[in-house]
Nucleic acid binder design. Structure first.
Lengths: 150, 150
DNA sequence: GGCATATAGTTGTTTAGACAACTATATAAA
DNA sequence: TTTATATAGTTGTCTAAACAACTATATGCC
């Protein structure tokens, strides 16, 4: 039984995602102002490598919800910036394992601090309870649409 | 006083906006399956012209939260598809007024129906109250970041 | 071993976003 | 009226997303 109770057209902002765009744009600006010369998309890849170094490109696809060509090109650009390097797996030569450089490791603390500052700024005047509900809704939306059968 | 209560790193999904990406991707697929050959971005421009035809490009910038080059190119592509046409304003020759073609008007009902179906699918299992909170949070996020002074 | 198939990654093309630099028209000030 | 300034829109460049088509390696089956 679908949620027919939602009125037509009123949920435009859910589709266009202007809030997440605004956060991304602000974080990009905060990076730039702090002299961090990477894109938000590149940062989102580094984010997962900081949690676990040496992921394959496929694992990065799954973690970042991107397709393989997108990750290929993001890794290309991160490699150009000397922030990661590809290492061909010895067990399975189809795979590239992606490792952080020392330079990338140095970026972690600074950029995570900027990300949290940006989120605090974005969520000013919003209660923890409201944030929890919003996170839940966004997660359910994602789960509803990520399922293959639907 | 910023919301220092939010834990580091836990709000990654707010930044990367995977929910809105998932909705946009699903809506794009639903358009394609239904034989509607426009992008979500093009649709978001048409959406505002359906509400009020004959907007200027600057008005479309404000309505869709895009910058001027983005709207120039979206209008370029919509014009190629013969869905809109630029009409130079007689009062102010700097301005292009953007008008829907008959073909674009025919798309309204079908695509709005698809958009609402997609949203119902995305929001299945979410209550109206939760959606209201989520909308409020996303709106506040946008407002917090859209202000010029910040 | 040899063949079909699945998996990992790459490349090409189109569309779009962000930013800087630019042109053209309009408005306001001197 | 000339000059400065603001506004509307365009163009160039880089990065990225989506999709299709491709190569290379691995795996499973005969």
């Amino acid at each position: 039984m679908p949620n027919n109770q939602f009125k037509k057209g009123e949920l435009y902002s859910f589709i266009t995602g202007k809030a997440s765009t605004a956060i991304a744009r602000r974080l990009q600006k905060n990076f730039k102002d702090a002299g961090v010369e990477i894109t938000i998309e590149q940062w989102s890849v580094l984010y997962h490598l900081w949690k676990e170094d040496g992921l394959s490109q496929q694992q990065l696809c799954d973690a970042t919800f991107r397709d393989k060509p997108s990750i290929t090109r993001l890794v290309d650009n991160l490699e150009k910036l000397q922030l990661v390097k590809r290492v061909s797996s010895k067990n399975d030569r189809r795979m590239n394992m992606i490792y952080l450089t020392a330079e990338a490791k140095d970026l972690q603390e600074k950029t995570m601090e900027l990300a949290n500052q940006t989120l605090n700024e974005a969520l000013e005047g919003v209660t923890i309870e409201e944030v929890e509900v919003a996170k839940l809704v966004l997660q359910k939306v994602y789960d509803n649409l990520a399922s293959i059968s639907a």
